[in-house]
Design a protein around this nucleic acid. Structure first.
Length: 349
DNA sequence: CCGTAAGA
DNA sequence: TCTTACGGG
């Protein structure tokens, strides 16, 4: 899922911070990525997600609600960016994903029947699927909370990257690295999973902190341009050419792009190994993705009634818990989000 | 993932 | 104040 630049990024190009370090910063969050992580992680030990009385899954709403409030309390100004229609080139990856999820669902059944709780949880996480309805409901909840969201024409990560390039956002927020290929000035990772996380398999917990990667620093550290970074991503594999080019890992890929004066030549050189995918088209997709200027970033006070209606009346959330959380959101809005009128603003009106 | 209660 | 266990919907 997404391009894997993990082993390419040198330590000096990233920095671990506390959530507080993002105080006052606008972060354009990849909504799909965040919601998916909540949906996968917020489960009982046997893998059952949170559900309302009608059996509708609510894990993503719980995660979105409480995590957003925590971010706002720390002074982060979140804007959620939702995916539009996926590019045609992504179809194969999406079909593969669907197939993997079906396989995971079958394994989940097996594990359930065998009564192996931990296995069941693992496969339930892999089988989780974020539906269109879940995304639409998340938008409704964000509106009630007074948190802005943006509808991307195509890829959410491309739109978030564009917003950071325009200076409308300080960073893009996602667990995936794609936004760097899309040109995001900064990427913040670990925003959905900040805190303690269980290491897979072991009964050991590690603290996960937000991690900031600056595009300029990354490019300097690697001695390449953004165009060359895109080519490296394509060699390693993206959603548009899953698997990448056989034999290319981070080191070979870096060496390869540096051996050419023109990044497009570096692409052409591996064309025959691409399995029929038009690599130049993939390159263009990252370099000039479809984005929009049709958005307004405005944080409004939370509408307690609307929040209540969605969470308590429709989805059986505990009223006193929701009330407390809304109280926290109200206070955080006043202190951190409300655009304060300066005396000069008042003078010039 | 999260908040809450209980115990340290 | 901090850590841990547990249930949330």
């Amino acid at each position: 899922m997404g391009v894997n630049l993990k082993d390419l990024i040198p330590p000096e190009a990233k920095v671990e911070v506390e959530l507080k370090a993002l105080k006052g910063k606008i972060v354009a969050l990849d909504a799909y990525n965040m919601l998916y992580q909540f949906l996968a992680a917020i489960r009982q030990p046997d893998g059952t997600p949170l559900m309302d009385r009608q059996g509708r899954v609510t894990s993503h709403l719980s995660g979105l609600f409480y995590r957003t409030i925590n971010m706002v309390e720390e002074g982060v100004k979140p804007v959620y960016v939702f995916d539009g229609k996926p590019p045609e080139l992504k179809r194969r990856e999406l079909e593969e994903r669907m197939k993997r999820k079906k396989q995971a669902a079958a394994k989940l059944e097996q594990a359930r029947r065998a009564g192996i709780v931990e296995e069941a949880r693992k496969y339930a996480m892999q089988a989780s699927h974020l539906t269109r309805d879940m995304a639409e409901e998340a938008k409704r909840l964000l509106e009630a909370m007074g948190i802005p969201w943006v509808q991307a024409p195509e890829e959410g990560e491309a739109q978030a990257a564009y917003m950071s390039r325009k200076g409308d956002a300080w960073a893009a927020g996602s667990q995936d690295y794609d936004s760097l290929l899309f040109g995001a000035t900064r990427l913040v990772r670990n925003l959905a999973i900040t805190g303690k996380r269980k290491l897979p398999g072991k009964n050991v917990y590690v603290t996960v902190k937000p991690e900031i990667i600056e595009l300029d620093k990354l490019l300097k550290a690697l001695g390449i341009t953004r165009e060359q970074l895109i080519v490296i991503g394509i060699l390693l594999g993206t959603d548009y050419n899953p698997g990448g080019i056989p034999g290319y890992g981070p080191k070979t890929a870096l060496r390869h792009v540096k051996a050419y004066d023109d990044p497009v030549k570096a692409l052409k050189a591996v064309e025959k190994l691409a399995g029929g995918v038009d690599l130049y088209e993939v390159y263009r997709l990252f370099l000039e993705p479809k984005v929009t200027d049709d958005y307004r970033l405005e944080w409004r006070p939370p509408d307690e009634e609307k929040i209540y209606h969605i969470l308590v009346e429709e989805h059986d959330f505990n009223p006193s818990r929701v009330k407390k959380a809304v109280e926290r959101l109200r206070k955080a809005y006043r202190e951190n989000l409300k655009s304060r009128q300066t005396s000069l603003d008042a003078w010039f009106g």
